[in-house]
Simulated scan of single mutants.
Amino acid sequence: MLKRVALFLATNLAVLALLSIVMAIFGINASSSAGLLVMAAVFGFGGSFISLAISKWMAKRSTGAHVIEQPRNESEQWLVATVRRQAEAAGIGMPEVAIYDAPEINAFATGANRNNALVAVSTGLLQHMSRDEAEAVLAHEVSHVANGDMVTMALLQGVLNTFVIVLARVVGRAIDGWMSGGRDSGGGGIGYFVTVFVLDMVFGLFASMIAMWFSRYREFRADAGGATLAGRGKMIAALQKLSLNHGVNTLPKQVAAFGISGAIGHGLRKLLMSHPPLEERITALRNTPEESLRQGLAA
């Protein structure tokens, strides 16, 4: 926990320092609203879109996933054939299909767009799920791709990052002016830097809550899409089987939000969870009318 806090503090200091240096190099006035907005947007969206652009490469590297170029056995043949059939039904390009070594039942999808994606499953999934259950998991991941969830998350994160950067600095400027008795310090006094540093963390926490709320929403939608492609019964059975993980998720942080299985959280921690509790997902799937299930898949 202390390591995470230290890393968070160091990241905020680095962003603050880098933003100040870049604005100084380009002669952008920190007190200029237009200049601040431009730089905030560059920083806010830049990181999100760079992450999106390299998401497939990063996912393969961080998980050690083996992309199936030529199926080596019947299981790999089935995986590729199932994803191809579901991708055609969803109206997207054929994703790369991969297997990564992990004990828990899990799978994830990532990629820059609907026609350039990656769908990967864990060895634990292949060992512990039936073909019907695995088919539903693949359908869930294909639904994420068809719904453009990776791009939408990047856009949302970019907006939130920009909001945090701008609002923290606007408030910091106001407090710095108050502390200096109304004298113009150019927005660079001690009150400004302390306020910005603190508000970057506070507003960043609220921004994370919003991003995770959307992440939980898209899991419900992908469950509905998976039920459309594979069948409601198979999707419910797959979610029930995921309870064997007991909240364990060994996926690296970069792709953990895109896995079908998430960590377990209680109380306030639930607000920062990328996945809803499995029982809520199963209940929602059981209670969703048939015609509404199809709305979970953007074809």
Score class of each variant (00 low, 15 high):
residue 234 K to S: 14
residue 128 H to D: 14
residue 242 L to M: 15
residue 31 S to R: 14
residue 145 V to R: 02
residue 185 S to G: 12
residue 141 E to H: 06
residue 110 T to Y: 08
residue 147 N to P: 09
residue 26 F to W: 14
residue 30 A to Y: 10
residue 241 K to E: 15
residue 150 M to I: 13
residue 236 I to C: 06
residue 118 L to M: 04
residue 156 L to T: 09
residue 70 Q to W: 08
residue 214 F to D: 09
residue 124 G to S: 11
residue 261 S to R: 01
residue 40 A to L: 10
residue 102 A to G: 02
residue 241 K to A: 15
residue 142 V to L: 03
residue 187 G to L: 01
residue 90 A to P: 03
residue 4 R to P: 06
residue 270 K to N: 08
residue 91 G to D: 03
residue 44 G to P: 01
residue 118 L to Y: 13
residue 233 G to C: 02
residue 201 M to C: 02
residue 246 H to L: 13
residue 28 I to H: 05
residue 12 N to V: 07
residue 35 G to K: 03
residue 18 L to S: 14
residue 235 M to N: 12
residue 119 V to T: 11
residue 138 L to C: 03
residue 32 S to C: 06
residue 129 M to W: 10
residue 193 F to E: 03
residue 149 D to K: 00
residue 102 A to F: 07
residue 11 T to A: 11
residue 250 T to V: 10
residue 250 T to R: 15
residue 239 L to K: 03
residue 244 L to W: 04
residue 216 R to H: 06
residue 136 A to C: 08
residue 109 A to R: 10
residue 190 I to Q: 01
residue 60 K to G: 12
residue 296 G to A: 07
residue 248 V to M: 10
residue 19 L to D: 04
residue 85 R to K: 14
residue 103 P to S: 15
residue 124 G to H: 11
residue 205 L to S: 12
residue 85 R to C: 02
residue 258 F to R: 07
residue 155 L to K: 03
residue 9 L to W: 07
residue 104 E to P: 09
residue 104 E to R: 15
residue 157 Q to T: 08
residue 186 G to D: 01
residue 136 A to K: 03
residue 212 M to G: 06
residue 180 S to C: 00
residue 25 I to R: 03
residue 145 V to T: 05
residue 21 I to N: 02
residue 126 L to K: 01
residue 37 L to K: 07
residue 148 G to V: 01
residue 23 M to D: 04
residue 128 H to E: 15
residue 39 M to F: 06
residue 144 H to I: 13
residue 12 N to E: 05
residue 122 S to H: 07
residue 199 L to W: 05
residue 159 V to N: 11
residue 29 N to R: 12
residue 65 A to P: 00
residue 164 V to Q: 10
residue 264 I to A: 01
residue 207 A to D: 05
residue 129 M to I: 08
residue 87 A to R: 02
residue 98 A to T: 06
residue 276 P to V: 02
residue 78 W to N: 05
residue 298 A to V: 12
residue 103 P to M: 05
residue 106 N to F: 14
residue 259 G to L: 04
residue 77 Q to A: 10
residue 162 T to R: 11
residue 203 F to K: 05
residue 252 P to S: 14
residue 221 R to S: 15
residue 25 I to G: 01
residue 158 G to I: 09
residue 1 M to K: 14
residue 62 S to Q: 15
residue 229 L to K: 09
residue 285 L to I: 02
residue 159 V to C: 14
residue 93 G to T: 10
residue 35 G to F: 04
residue 110 T to M: 07
residue 196 V to W: 02
residue 135 E to A: 12
residue 144 H to G: 11
residue 247 G to H: 01
residue 299 A to M: 14
residue 97 V to R: 04
residue 280 E to D: 14
residue 202 V to W: 06
residue 56 K to C: 09
residue 115 N to K: 02
residue 155 L to N: 04
residue 64 G to Y: 08
residue 77 Q to E: 13
residue 193 F to C: 05
